[in-house]
Amino acid sequence: MSYYKEEDLSRFAEISKHRPDLFEKFMAWYQACQEDGALSRREKALIGLAVAHALQCPYCIDAYAQSCLESGSNMEQMTEAIHMASALRGGAALIHGLQAHNSVDKVSM
C-alpha cells in the first residue's frame, strides 16, 4: 500500500481545518502566482512541473502535468522541463564533489 492516494489531491483544502486564516493567505498567494504576468500561465506550469520533479512530490507532479497539458504544452516541452530539473539536481549533487575533494585535500599530503 502506498502512503500517497490520488484522491487526496482534491482534499487539499482540508489542511485549512485548524488554521483557516493561514490556508486562506497561502491560497491567495498560490493562485496569484499562477496568473499570466511577465511569464505566461504555460511557462509557469512548466516551472511548476520542473519544481515538482525536483521536490519529487507526487501530488505536485500530477497537478502540474495536468496544468501543462491544459495550458497547451506537449510532451516534448514537458520532458525538457523535467530534464532541466533533473540536470540541476544532478549538477547540485556533483558540485558537492568539490566538498569531498576539499575534505580529502585538507588531510592529505
Partner: peptide, 17 residues
C-alpha cells in the same frame, strides 16, 4: 480538441502556437 481527458488551453494562447 484535447488529446485525452483534460480541458483545452486558453484559445488565444494555443492559436498563437
Amino acid at each position: 480538441n484535447p488529446v485525452g481527458a483534460f480541458l483545452p488551453p486558453a484559445q488565444s494562447s494555443i492559436e498563437a502556437d
